[in-house]
Simulated assay, not measured.
Amino acid sequence: MKIKHADFITSAVRKNQYPETGHPEVAFVGRSNVGKSTIINAITNRRKLAKVSNTPGRTRLVNFFLINEAAMLVDLPGYGYAKISKTEKAAWGKIIEDYINSSPHLKRFVLLVDSRHKPTADDIAMMEYFRYFEKDVVVIGTKLDKLKRNDIRKSEKLIRETLELTDKDQLILYSSTSRENLQAVIDLVFHDILPEDE
């Protein structure tokens, strides 16, 4: 599967601002510093499609990108950034929750976690939310290049145990630096959403 086209469509904070394309949607969600924008840029092979900030927590909007003119990649605001007020946290949470509950075209979530560390309480809460509402979700562990090779299995085991993943739940560790497992990520994220021959 190849990503041939990727275009920014719009940013939104409420339902009436979401684009009405009718395309299936894949939503990316994760902590503010997990590397969400970087992996989106790698998947789409566009360096600056999603804005990468040195300051975590800058993305406060729901960003929509059209992929191969057939699907929408949705970048949700990052959660868990400590240096924001409770009011801001609540506002971000509402933006995410409103999108999750109101988008009729949402087909899959991509939960990003930092493969170097045990998933956080926020990561666990997000996974439990998906599980409770029976959402299709895949988990991607970022920053694989920061792990020693003999720690990869340990990291996978820790992520699976902490998020209570079953053998059927999909988990891939990925590196934006080396692009290791990039194609596997693309194939997993867009499985049954984009045609296999794309």
Rank of each mutant, 00 (worst) to 15 (best):
Y99A: 04
S115F: 03
I140A: 11
K107I: 02
F64P: 14
N101C: 06
R160D: 08
D98L: 07
R108N: 03
W92A: 02
S85F: 01
S175A: 06
L171R: 05
L165R: 03
H117R: 11
L144Y: 09
L73I: 03
D136C: 08
D122L: 12
D75G: 09
A71R: 04
R149M: 09
E164V: 07
R149W: 00
P119C: 02
G141C: 12
K107N: 13
Y79M: 11
L111T: 08
I67D: 05
Y81H: 14
E69W: 00
G78H: 13
S85V: 06
E88I: 07
T120L: 06
N101F: 03
P77F: 11
L144C: 12
I172Y: 02
I96L: 13
Y99I: 04
V74D: 08
K107G: 08
G141R: 07
A71L: 09
E128I: 02
I172E: 12
Y79V: 10
D169V: 07
V138N: 05
T162W: 10
L111R: 08
A121L: 10
I140R: 07
S115M: 05
S102W: 04
E156D: 08
L147A: 12
I152W: 10
A70S: 15
E156H: 00
D123K: 10
L147I: 13
D75Q: 05
D123G: 13
S155H: 13
F109I: 04
G78S: 13
L171Y: 02
D122I: 05
K143L: 01
D136T: 05
E164H: 12
V110S: 10
K86Y: 01
S103D: 13
L173N: 13
K168I: 01
L106C: 12
V113A: 03
P104D: 08
T142D: 00
M127W: 00
T142C: 10
V139W: 03
Y129A: 04
Y79R: 12
